[in-house]
Design a binder for these strands. Structure first.
Lengths: 204, 204
DNA sequence: AGCATTACTGACAATATTGTCAGTATATAT
DNA sequence: ATATATACTGACAATATTGTCAGTAATGCT
């Protein structure tokens, strides 16, 4: 009768990964309110005290999620920008897609829950990208032209907030506005936005 | 010794207003997690069953908040667009400011909590504004020019998602990017964005 | 004044949620 | 094989949270 009490024993890293994935899925599915230790544990197939064992507290889990989100965003953005010889339009698409699929929601939620959470990391990412973009613009500009640094910052800011807003409300907006929810619509939008940006002679 | 059991008795509308204001303040202050009946009741100076009395349930309160947010947004946007003879830049500023101060956060949160909440109302607002904008563009275009309707929709979408993203992450972005948090920075950003839009011959 | 209606409250119930703890099982080292 | 370290769990505790209910008091009506 003695149940064979098989118990899995993971490495701490594996366990943390498993729990973080479950937590991210929970947030994406049910919104911020979905962050319940019991639900996450059930989804991950572990007991809820295990979460506390690995993250100390619920707040610790939130901190870990913040770090995860920032790292994930950076990785996706790096991938988007280091892809060689693609068009402005393709780069825009990559950036927008980076925020979709839950990451945008997570960032937005974390921004309100933990406003000063990973300020420094986020700042680094942003500066890094502003620098890269500015460098490209300088390189692409005709010799002797002065490329405004502020304009580079504004451009980064516009794309960033638009991509975030898109991740959160984009689908609803397209539905409401009568734009078909199809990859083709996205493609046309990104193409239009790319034109808009380039029309001001802003090489990206 | 008998305490003078003075009890305020409001009209249902007054009570609902009081509670909704407290709930909005709670969301703006502590994020989505701040929506606790007890806290809201305390902030409003009433007992928590009163909230249930007037809204039926917590879900009922959320529905009311959704409607409020949509109406508030529409009012602010109407005001922004009906202001006579202002510049593109000023209109952009009004739209962005409409989302700030908590409304953007509320809309974002409600979008995840209640994704199909006030779809129809939101759709009406969006269509309404797309129509207005398109009308203006047609009127402002030289005779004989064909003004793309899709472009009008894209423009509305871009401004909407950018304004929403700005409300949520704008302050953090400006801080991270080294842009000073001052009205002057906003002014310059809106001016730049207005130029960007007009450069594609897009009268707004 | 008396009456009906209902906004309002305190007390209570049921459940959910975070966190603690003692003990168990498993991997690793010796 | 034995020992050590620790990932892991079930049971429990403390508190929070939504919701119910019976009763109270203020308002409007006749």
């Amino acid at each position: 009768m003695a149940e064979s009490a098989k118990r899995v024993r993971r490495t701490p890293d594996q366990a943390r990964r498993l729990i973080l994935d479950a937590a991210q899925a929970a947030i994406a599915r049910t919104g911020p309110e979905g962050l319940r230790l019991h639900d996450i544990a059930a989804a991950a197939g572990v007991s809820h005290p295990l979460i506390l064992h690995h993250f100390g507290s619920r707040a610790g889990l939130v901190r870990a999620l913040t770090r995860e989100a920032v790292v994930e965003l950076r990785d996706k953005l790096v991938a988007a920008m280091s892809e060689p010889d693609n068009t402005t339009e393709e780069q825009l698409a990559r950036v927008f897609y980076a925020f979709r699929g839950g990451l945008g929601q997570r960032l937005a939620w974390l921004a309100t829950v933990d406003p000063d959470g990973d300020e420094s990391a986020a700042a680094m990412i942003q500066r890094d990208f502003a620098d890269r973009l500015h460098g490209r613009r300088v390189a692409a500009a005709p010799p002797g032209t002065i490329v405004s640094r502020e304009e580079s910052l504004f451009l980064v800011q516009l794309i960033a907030i638009a991509a975030l807003g898109d991740a959160i409300y984009g689908a609803q907006f397209r539905r409401s506005g009568g734009l078909p929810e199809a990859p083709e619509t996205d493609r046309r939008f990104f193409a239009w936005l790319a034109t808009l940006i380039r029309a001001r002679a802003l090489p990206v």
